[in-house]
Amino acid sequence: MHRFANPARFLRIANAVLPWAAGLSAVCFAAGLYLGLFASPPDYQQGDTVRIMYIHVPAAWMSMFTYSTMAVAAAAALVWKHPLAEVYAKAAAPLGAGFTALCLLTGSLWGAPMWGTWWVWDARLTSVLVLFFLYLGYMALVDAFDDPARGNKAGNILLLVGAVNVPIIKFSVEWWNTLHQPASVFRLGGPTIAASMLWPLLLMAVAFQSYFFAVVILRIRAGLAARRVQTLRLGQAN
């Protein structure tokens, strides 16, 4: 892992991965959306409303995946001072916030017809809302200092403190009574979703994941370029 922390080496690999990630994302979105929204069967209880799942669940997975990787990057930045780690966390934050917002929005749209309410303060919904605020707080905090190094450090500490929320989100539905259902896919004893609905869901998960990789590579490239511009300017000023 330390080998890839070199920005130049990372960029060489990332540039090679980028077109593949973008292509995979486009193909999986097309196939997953078609299968999920048209070709898959309705649910025996929820009917066609279940199709919200094909957006809601991958968005929820990505919201937690993105935050977990940002927390690991924050630890790497604090302990080993990897130059790439902070660039990654900053690049991924708006994406994670977007996934979380999408998850909350589609969840609300799903809850209204099925549960009979747009929102409740149960443990799952509340902890995901906290995750959304953590993303927003991180983005606000890193830019709140005149010295970017101090901003990054404060942001990294916030990311690590907020990491306790990730297992709380995952296990909230098991530790406490919630209105939200327990896990259907990543659970002991295997998935409780019929294969004809699980495949489109996994396709959509791959689509979201590769979309994330493609966009985060673009954003890291921009972040690294911005850093170089900054050092050049500082060099000129002196």
């Binding site: 025996y44 799942m53 549960w115 409780t192 979703i193 609905m197």
Partner: peptide
């Protein structure tokens, strides 16, 4: 009154 559904999904 709110409805709560379980984790099972399958075609009819």
């Amino acid at each position: 009154l709110l409805a709560k559904h379980d984790e099972k999904y399958m075609p009819p």
